[in-house]
Design a protein around this nucleic acid. Structure first.
Lengths: 187, 187
DNA sequence: AAATTAATATACAGAACGGTATATATTATA
DNA sequence: TATAATATATACCGTTCTGTATATTAATTT
């Protein structure tokens, strides 16, 4: 609703990715966003709450974008899962790409009791389930197994791209995905 | 050489993995290691130097262990690359496994100018080159391409295991790796 | 035994951290 | 225009951070 809250979320998202979450102080966030700490703490109860909201919004935006893309091209289940990595490639190669929140957050908050880690883990699981649904709609037998493998390629490729921008890892992830999907369809 | 330096390295390695790098202060490290800051700063010029040494030693230890395993089982190139993920699985499933340093470090230090990020990136590249050498020794045509794909599976599976211990991701990464290797050998 | 090295305890400097108190200014609503 | 909500500026609190200064104790070497 509030334009300032959105600005803070947007700024925090960017800074968390470019400087790291723990390395980004709230003072820096409000300075870059052009507001004050009082305003930040009016919208977010704590820095942890802000991190959680940033993660939620990031994943929400990506999932929405991906769904649009998948439904725009073809409604056929086989096409959709085959084109999954085409869309992922477009997304990763776009200049706006800065990384995947739940991958970075789980590394910075390794304790499984930590709420941030738990949300990251949940988002990773939900994305895997999303792929699994695509796979089972395409009548693939071991849909969960294939989904897990594709998610490994996804997370590995994103990791590689976060490590070195322009690594070209997605291109090879896509090729590998095609081989695995073709194999799973035949079986 | 010094037993205290080793103890500090060992303690830091453990704490960095279980609590995160930025979230672990030097005070905590020396307290757990049973020494003092003065001693730590006698062996390591700064916290950054300590992090760099921890990363180097971790990767060194893993590479040494992996080499031993690969050479112990079979000297045939085809067997070696096929058994790569068997050894990785054993390593990941061992109780001592706490994660891969360069994956976590690159997430906590995303800036490509940062020395810690640069070392992480270098280690990731070196591991990929190691797999590529295995592949080319097995007379695989696109050795670099396969190596990149296998490294994505590796990093993805490790990421998954860091996120949720006992995820079983490695089992499926191994299956995927076999499919990709078999396909690359035939080509 | 004397001298050098290694390790300790402790205390502190200076900065950055998350979060709050207070008081003022701006905006929108009634 | 009066009232209420929203946003601001600024200063501060207590804690934690990396790194150092100082002085003392233990171990090793000559």
């Amino acid at each position: 609703m509030s334009i300032l809250k959105d600005k803070i979320l947007e700024t925090a998202t960017d800074l968390f990715h470019t400087r790291g979450i723990n390395s980004t102080g709230v003072d820096t966030i409000v300075a870059v966003a052009g507001t004050t700490k009082m305003t930040l703490y009016k919208y977010f109860g704590s820095k942890e709450d802000l991190i959680l909201e940033v993660l939620q919004k990031s994943q929400q935006d990506f999932q929405f974008w991906l769904n649009e893309k998948l439904n725009a091209n073809s409604k056929k289940p086989n096409d959709k899962i085959q084109q999954l990595f085409d869309h992922v490639e477009e997304w990763v190669n776009s200049p706006a790409f800065i990384g995947v929140g739940f991958i970075k957050a789980s590394a910075e908050f390794p304790n499984e009791e930590n709420p941030i880690h738990q949300l990251s883990s949940q988002q990773s699981r939900e994305f895997r389930q999303f792929i699994s649904k695509l796979a089972s709609e395409a009548s693939i037998k071991d849909a969960d197994g294939l989904a897990l493998q594709l998610s490994l390629l996804f997370e590995g490729a994103v990791q590689a791209e976060q490590m070195k921008r322009g690594s070209g890892a997605i291109k090879y992830a896509k090729k590998a995905a095609k081989i695995l999907i073709d194999g799973a369809i035949k079986a």
